[in-house]
Write a protein that binds this DNA or RNA. Structure first.
Lengths: 190, 190
DNA sequence: AATATAAATGAATAAATATTCATTAAAGAA
DNA sequence: TTCTTTAATGAATATTTATTCATTTATATT
């Protein structure tokens, strides 16, 4: 009996991400995905019910992927600034090394594919970071601003750096990482 | 002789932006745009050669629109911080009041519609701000970091605030505006 | 090696979408 | 008012894209 090849699913995901990065969710066709993944179009329908399911399941994979990377090497017992820097670096590294996934998530956000419930799931991903920021406020280390906006400020900077590194082909040296972190830290610190 | 109605073009643009905000560039069809704009599908082809031209010309309108708003009430003779705050506010206000345009520009960036030259044009839009930041460095008011990354930091924060105001239905009070500006300023100041 | 089972194929079909065009409506000129 | 010109219409057509399915291929089991 021939068995489904789990690797094939990854090939399909990779092909989809590559195409979305190149020409957006709007430009994706099942034929193009199949060709890029090196399979027949019919094969896509063995692994996925239809185009929607492909997009939605890939979205799910990308989100779970992010979640597992963001809090790597982070412990709630770290001193505040250490934990904060760890998470800041993790998110930036993740956005850079998996840029197409980030773009895909962003594009899905404004597409007919993702529903409101899924958006809430995405938001929950940042809960441990919100917790850390709350702690930073309790310890009077950072500004007394609604945690939601502290998070917004932090994430905004990171996202834009990642985008511009990729779009404008910039190299991000250790020094530049430090400078960027410094700006973020000076922005939130009390 | 019947004459073309310039207002009709604006109706078509408005319809397109509304649909892109609702379901992304991927979800747009000419029929949907026509219906939303209250015209027949054939009418779209009187004003635009085809779908591509509609998207590209709308993109152009949005970009020009941004450019004219960003530097409103700004003079190079303003003291640095005054000028900086003016532009910061203008960009945020513009992103908020014309959110669909911002989303449209962002989505176009990752689509088959926009070419590299156009992306460069978009980047040029920020030149006066880059100039101002350079001046801030010369006056030792802000950090001595590559101007490109100072700009990135500033824009990232603004964009994320605008997105989250809209996505999560937040109200941005004057106090919150001030707090957000303070974070940005503390981040870049020397 | 023969058989059975499910994956894989890709041309064929269905469905969605872009575009055209014969016709009608409007508005300025004669 | 009539004529002329162009906008506007929307059903018809062309094109693109999603999906199906009869057939082939691969592999585990006997």
């Amino acid at each position: 009996m021939k068995i489904k090849d789990d690797n094939k699913i990854n090939d399909i995901y990779a092909a989809t991400l590559k195409l979305v990065k190149a020409s957006g969710l709007a430009g994706i066709t099942m034929q193009a995905v199949a060709k890029e993944a090196g399979v027949a179009t019919g094969t896509l329908y063995i692994y996925f019910q239809n185009k929607d399911e492909l997009i939605i399941r890939l979205f799910d994979v990308c989100v779970k992927n992010s979640a597992s990377n963001f809090f790597k090497d982070y412990s709630v017992r770290d001193p505040f600034k250490v934990g904060f820097r760890t998470i800041w670096s993790n998110i930036l590294q993740h956005r850079l090394s998996r840029f197409p996934e980030s773009i895909f998530i962003e594009q899905c956000f404004h597409s007919p594919f993702i529903d409101e419930d899924t958006k809430i799931t995405l938001k929950k991903m940042f809960d441990p970071l919100l917790e850390l920021l709350n702690r930073g406020k309790r310890e009077h280390l950072i500004k007394n601003i609604d945690t939601f906006w502290l998070l917004t400020f932090m994430i905004g900077g990171i996202n834009e750096v990642a985008k511009r590194v990729v779009y404008f082909n910039k190299k991000l040296s250790v020094e530049l990482m430090d400078q960027n972190f410094q700006m973020c830290w000076d922005g939130i610190k009390a």
